[in-house]
Design a protein around this nucleic acid. Structure first.
Lengths: 188, 188, 188, 188
DNA sequence: CATGAATGAGCGTTCATTCAT
DNA sequence: TATGAATGAACGCTCATTCAT
């Protein structure tokens, strides 16, 4: 019985992602999501208090998922250059492997109401802590967390979102970016 | 015959910006926009064929505006470092001076249907041409346009969007970013 | 789960008929129908996919009803003259006993989109079959089905629709028509 | 100048007919008619007080037109059989030669509000007078005007409206009907 | 827990009509 | 006379949510 409930909630999550990808944020209505998930509209309200709460909840969950995906690919023993390589390529890999989820999270993060509730900073403290150790050891350039996040995450997100703009070879494109960021950030 | 009242159209544009800022993209309904602009809902259809067309039109207009704002602050005689400084600070200045418009454009650019119609690439070719001349003269690092755009625009946009994340001094923050990008991109 | 309230659907049908009678086909809007039926506009869409579908569905239903009303009053043993009498008077009786429904069906049958969906021919094959047996037995004049329908149904419909045109005595009027059609069609 | 005005009003009439044929009575909005006629919506109100008045006016005009078309094809010297032949075939010919106008008039005549204003009886008195002379001379069967109209006009209208129902040969169909009505109505 | 029925509010859009030129 | 601009009201329909089972 427990399994079944979990199943239903899971199908709702997947349906939200799918509908959002196909019809955009504003096209993702409760009834469409319910239809896609194969449940009744009312069932959604068994698991979530409101549509807003559902969006915030699922957005938060998948935000963390992408973050953990990233964390799994780094470890504190890495050389600084490898760390940057892992993060940039990892982030990009996530955007292609989980294209639907990535797109959903991107769309949510542009919605003021939602991103207020899911602070990006909060869930990223671990990775900043990691960078601080590298900075303390003089392996990575000292700069504010904001600058670090700005140059480390924003460009790769930019490439992932505008993949159509890229030249024929996305891999070479990515390598170039990695190399630039290594030069910018690595010390010693 | 009554002549078209372009002040009215301007009020519609401003109303769209304002309502979108307050209620988000999905909260910006025709009737709310009309009320905010002090016109009848039907009047909006005198100036635009549909809501979709209105969004695309106004999005395009303000996209170009921000781009021209930027172009006015650079000239081909500048030193490479000054060029980067002008672009980064100019972009940021625009985001604070035209906070509402900037936020509106950002939201539109995340909406797939809209950003397809307003190609960012197209309106940016002038600035890329400018960079090519610097690259040809060996003043700026050779790299793909995509990488250039990624490191030049995305980070400052990131900071502008997450201004809440920054430390007490946004000016210092910006200076740090400028310095990093100069080191990364300037040659000779 | 709430069960479907078919009384509600019935009220919708009656409301459609009533509103159409009072305000004509083009005055029969969803909101007026809903108000007349005592339900929410949205409720109508629980029972019908669209306004078009609702009209077609209810039109078809009442078309069949009038046809069955007629079929109940004839039987294959009747003399030819009685058959014609039964049909003409039956049709007319229906138009007065179910005045509202009759008027609604008449209006629908003049709307091209609707009458395409509800083929009159289809539901009338039984009565044509009946006539064929009379014709085969030499009791009724041989002629095409189209001619038969034209002289049998159109005139009485004409009288029913233009009841205002008639003289003081509609019964005498009807008798005259019956007699004329009997002379025209009966053989032997 | 006079010519031009007349032209404009005429174009409005034709536009109404055309739009009604293509989009049905309920699709014939002022703005569509104006667009089709190549005038401004406001111009329509120069010639007609309201949409209702415009419909009534044009409906009346074309009703008379079809009636005069018919009257031109009969003359008091005809044999009774020829008179009936002329009327039935004339009416049918009109429906095919002026298909759009015929369809428009038919649709109007089913709209209660309109047909109240344009009494059919009124414009038909001439033809009834003609029939009375035939009846007085014993050439045509004595019956009420209503019966006469019912059997003379309704069947041919029925055939004209349901031309799709007819067999391969509409001409033969029409001949059959003419023959039947001659038998029914002609005396001596 | 799970549901389809039911709904008031609101959606984007078009309407018949009037206004100002 | 003739017009495009302007509009409040209404259109068909969908929304997020609650109800009754």
């Amino acid at each position: 019985m427990r399994t079944k409930d979990y199943d239903k909630q899971h199908r709702i999550k997947e349906a939200l992602i799918r509908v959002t990808l196909q019809e955009g944020m504003s096209g993702a209505s409760i009834s469409k999501i319910a239809r896609e998930a194969g449940v009744s509209p009312a069932t959604i309200y068994v698991y979530y208090d409101s549509k807003e709460a559902m969006l915030a909840d699922i957005f938060a969950e998948y935000s963390h998922q992408s973050y953990h995906y990233l964390m799994d690919r780094v470890d504190p023993q890495m050389a600084a250059a490898d760390l940057i390589d892992a993060i940039v390529r990892g982030y990009y890999a996530y955007s292609t492997e989980h294209e639907e989820v990535f797109s959903f999270v991107e769309q949510c993060s542009r919605c003021p109401t939602l991103s207020e509730q899911v602070s990006e900073q909060e869930c990223c403290c671990e990775i900043f802590d990691l960078f601080h150790t590298y900075q303390d050891r003089g392996l990575i350039r000292r700069c504010s967390d904001a600058s670090l996040a700005a140059v480390l995450f924003a460009p790769v997100r930019f490439l992932a979102n505008n993949s159509c703009l890229q030249a024929a070879d996305p891999d070479a494109q990515l390598s170039e970016l990695v190399q630039m960021l290594q030069q910018l950030l690595c010390r010693g």
